[in-house]
Design a protein around this nucleic acid. Structure first.
Lengths: 152, 152
DNA sequence: CGTTAATAGTTAACTAGTTGAATAATTAAT
DNA sequence: ATTAATTATTCAACTAGTTAACTATTAACG
């Protein structure tokens, strides 16, 4: 049985807030000012998926489709993404990166890798692997309890 | 030496994004619709500090003071926080929670505790402690490298 | 077949959070 | 006493999110 469960929870909430905030801030500084963090994550997702739809992004990022439309519009204005209609099902629009988008992604990743690499060196490899294992488990639990409600 | 350092970094980025997004979403559902996540964190901070200033919040949350002013304005309109001028140094404004703010905080925390508690049960206590240790270390490194720049 | 559902995406109005620049009020420095 | 610096605010402009209404298209099925 855990003692001080309340303390653990407080620690986790404070840490997760702080780490996320400071991590985002570092990445923002690192990737330069022309791309917001959200746009970077979208860039990242499309790059890895090669091609995807608005619905897919909305599902993945847990936001409404209209929010995706807005963010894609801004990235489209910057010449980073392309929209192509599916000829079979003309409701569907495929999102892909332009050459400029791809290049920007590669540049960002290189910088982020250097950044995270310099941090990773400060940890024991075993410690990192254990950390990631637990993190992965936590993520899985969060996914499974998407519509979880604590009973009153 | 770590093999597949690139893969580890990718894993971490994807996980931290996903966990944060889904965690925030769960907390938002849990605390009800009248408080945004950011407002909840501010509420939390002021409650624990008893009293604080805008500058302190801006420093802690890593945003400009004008952003804090805006958030505090919205919370003030909801009757959650009070502003009191320091009589010694009349530039300073102290922020404290009203009774309503305190009550809301207590209610939110109770719900969040129940939520996190139900998740914590799914982990080995030892695993949690190790996880938090590494997380704490990561946070410390992030704090220390606030203005870190990767050399080109 | 034709009408009704459902799906994919967009648009518009609104709220929240953020920055940056300008400002007001006050205190510190010399 | 004048100039600096500090604390907080206001304002304009922007990103990101929601809800609701809408368009266009496809699916369902009597």
């Amino acid at each position: 049985m855990l003692e001080n469960i309340q303390e653990l929870i407080d620690q986790y909430i404070d840490l997760s807030f702080s780490v996320h905030r400071k991590g985002e801030s570092l990445i923002r500084d690192q990737i330069g000012s022309d791309l917001t963090n959200d746009q970077h994550y979208i860039l990242r997702y499309i790059s890895q998926a090669k091609s995807c739809t608005s619905s897919e992004l909305a599902e993945e990022f847990d936001v409404k489709k209209s929010a995706i439309t807005a963010i894609i519009n801004r990235m489209w204005e910057k010449g980073l993404v392309e929209r192509t209609r599916d000829e079979k099902d003309r409701r569907v629009v495929y999102l892909t990166l332009t050459d400029k988008g791809n290049q920007l992604y590669v540049d960002c990743e290189e910088r982020i890798y250097k950044l995270v690499e310099s941090f990773i060196k400060k940890f024991d490899p075993k410690e990192i692997k254990q950390f990631l294992e637990t993190y992965k488990k936590l993520n899985q639990i969060l996914i499974e309890s998407k519509d979880y409600k604590v009973e009153e």
